[in-house]
Amino acid sequence: MHSDPILAGVIGNKQFACDVWGDTVNTASRMESSGVPGQINISSATFELVKDFCECEYRGKIPAKNKGEMDMYLVHNLK
């Protein structure tokens, strides 16, 4: 999970589809692919938003494809 601004829009003239674009989408994808099965993996941006409400474990700097090393956290419980 990652939190940051995104660009969203509708594509098509006859058959409409909604889509989202941007670095935020790519970063969220890296959080998902670098996650731990059965747990919630979040970025440092999301951690800053939830740290007062959730107990999180810092995983360290984890390599993420085309992003370098990123700070990642696992969410365990609500406070």
Rank of each mutant, 00 (worst) to 15 (best):
S3L: 07
D4L: 05
D4Y: 11
D4V: 02
D4T: 14
I6Q: 05
L7G: 14
G9H: 13
G9Q: 14
V10R: 00
I11D: 07
N13L: 12
N13A: 11
K14D: 08
K14H: 08
Q15A: 03
Q15R: 15
Q15C: 06
A17H: 15
A17T: 15
D19I: 15
V20T: 12
W21M: 08
W21D: 10
N26Y: 03
N26A: 05
T27A: 06
T27F: 01
R30P: 00
R30S: 10
R30V: 00
R30M: 06
M31A: 02
M31H: 06
S33M: 12
S34N: 06
S34F: 07
S34Y: 08
S34E: 09
G35N: 00
G35I: 01
G35L: 01
V36T: 11
V36F: 09
G38C: 00
G38V: 06
G38D: 04
I40S: 05
N41V: 00
S43Y: 06
S43T: 03
S43K: 01
A45M: 02
A45R: 08
T46R: 01
D52W: 03
D52H: 05
F53E: 11
F53S: 13
F53K: 10
C54A: 15
C54G: 00
E55S: 13
C56N: 04
Y58N: 14
G60K: 04
G60E: 08
G60M: 03
K61E: 12
K61H: 03
I62L: 04
I62V: 15
A64C: 14
A64T: 08
K65I: 01
K65F: 01
N66A: 03
N66W: 00
G68N: 00
E69M: 13
E69G: 11
M70H: 04
M70I: 02
M72D: 03
Y73M: 09
Y73W: 09
L74P: 00
L74A: 09
V75L: 14
V75G: 01
V75M: 09
N77E: 08
N77I: 05
L78V: 13
K79F: 14
